[in-house]
């Protein structure tokens, strides 16, 4: 068994900022346990001598020149905003313990 616990799933959900219901946590705990058990298989062949590949094409040094290009207009930038105040995005207060 992979031993995924509901507490672990709840912690992952908080890292991922998803407010899961207890039912969702319960069912995800089962799903995740099964999936992890299955994908664990990668460890069988991932020996230390095998290098990791993070990009399928071996490119390096792809750069852009330091030249300004037009930005969006402020209206475009804010066009999808759920809430705004003038030209800024407005959000509920930020929880910050003092």
């Amino acid at each position: 068994m992979s031993g995924i616990t509901a507490e672990q799933v709840a912690h992952l959900a908080s890292l991922a900022r998803i407010d899961l219901s207890p039912e969702e946590i319960a069912s995800l705990t089962i799903d995740l346990g099964q999936i992890v058990e299955s994908v664990k298989k990668v460890q069988e062949v991932a020996t230390p001598d095998v290098p990791a590949t993070s990009h399928p094409m071996p490119l390096t040094n792809v750069f852009r020149d330091d030249i300004v290009v037009p930005s969006l207009t402020v209206e475009q930038a804010l066009s999808g905003a759920p809430d705004r105040d003038g030209d800024k995005f407005r959000v509920p207060p930020i929880l910050e313990e003092d």
Binding site: V42, A46, T47, V50, P51, A52, T53, S54
Partner: peptide, 8 residues
């Protein structure tokens, strides 16, 4: 990390 090795 292991998955990236499998990719190789």
């Amino acid at each position: 990390g292991s998955a990236q090795k499998v990719r190789t």
